[in-house]
């Protein structure tokens, strides 16, 4: 167990520092890259918050779907190979459900304001 502040809190305060203290003193390219840097730290923060539980759930679903053990990376590669060979595809409700879950997780971390993600959430709640 690590000491406080937590990694999430540290990343959060650094992003805050870049946005509200460093950026206003920068111009042109440097200011643009500072904003991109702060956005990157927001991704890290969301990943720290969301990924541990989501990755564990993804791992569990992959073991069921593929009926084997392995690391998250190995199982994802195996899933890709089965999709490529046409052994599992759009006709599998389990696969489609799994792909939606991993994709919504990625977007929740990477780009939670993206139009396609926001719309997918709306459509999911109506489904």
């Amino acid at each position: 167990m690590q000491d406080q502040p937590t990694a999430i809190e540290l990343v959060d305060i650094v992003a805050d520092f870049i946005r509200h203290h460093a950026m206003p003193q920068l111009q042109g390219h440097a200011a643009f890259h500072a904003r991109v840097a702060a956005n990157a730290l927001d991704i890290v923060k969301r990943e720290l918050e969301i990924a541990p539980k989501a990755n564990a759930e993804e791992h569990g679903r992959l073991e069921l779907l593929l009926e084997r053990d392995g690391s998250l990376d190995e199982l994802n590669r195996e899933l890709c190979a089965e999709i490529e060979r046409g052994e599992i595809g759009l006709e599998s409700e389990e696969l489609v459900d799994h792909l939606w879950k991993i994709t919504l997780t990625k977007l929740a971390i990477d780009q939670p304001n993206y139009s396609g993600y926001v719309r997918a959430l709306e459509e999911g709640s109506e489904a």
Partner: peptide, 24 residues
């Protein structure tokens, strides 16, 4: 930094692909 973060935009296309191929 810009180059690095664009990698985290490929997931945008994944949600678009699922909306096209397996709409909810």
């Amino acid at each position: 930094v810009e180059r690095a973060t664009i990698g985290r935009r490929s997931s945008e296309t994944e949600v678009d692909l699922l909306r096209l191929l397996a709409p909810r």
